[in-house]
């Protein structure tokens, strides 16, 4: 019975948090994440959303040959680490930050232009005692070199 109430509590919290609009992602992306791209120039495209622990999102973008790019993945301070993977259009994994200490910033260069899929997933925090799930903004910003 105790378990049932626990699950009901968790579900209620999840639904509540899912419907709350934070509306803060824009300033988060602009003020907290964009500076991480320096000295690259942000491409000006806003890719940010609210995610909870365990949730994921994907970004589809064409990257061009012989252009240096920087990817910055930023999450609200209350979120656990964010795993990101880069896949080709056939979903073959080309890169993951999982074996690179969950690095948030990485630089890339392509010899041939192609569409890549950037998959992000907010990890779950198994050590947290509370039954509520952290939720917050996650931004994926892309910069390129101008010289």
């Amino acid at each position: 019975m105790k378990k049932v109430w626990s699950i009901i509590g968790v579900v209620t919290t999840f639904i509540f948090l899912s419907t709350v609009s934070y509306g803060q992602c824009r300033s988060f992306a602009k003020n907290e994440c964009r500076p991480d791209l320096e000295p690259f120039v942000h491409d000006g495209i806003y890719n940010a959303t609210e995610l909870s622990e365990g949730e994921s999102a994907e970004l589809y973008k064409t990257f061009y040959s012989n252009q240096e790019y920087r990817i910055a993945i930023c999450g609200d301070a209350n979120l656990p680490t964010i795993k990101f993977q880069i896949m080709d259009a056939d979903r073959n994994i080309l890169f993951t930050n999982q074996d690179k200490d969950f690095a948030r910033i990485w630089d890339f260069k392509l010899e041939a232009s192609q569409q890549l899929i950037i998959s992000i997933e907010v990890q779950t925090d198994d050590e947290r005692i509370s039954d509520t799930f952290a939720r917050g903004c996650v931004a994926v910003l892309i910069g390129f070199k101008t010289d």
Binding site: V41, D43, I45, T49, L51, S56, A57, E58, L59
Partner: peptide, 15 residues
């Protein structure tokens, strides 16, 4: 899962 589509910005294209 959430899907985001990112077109090249005009600045990137011009460059």
């Amino acid at each position: 899962k959430m899907v985001m589509i990112s077109l090249p910005s005009p600045v990137e294209t011009a460059m």
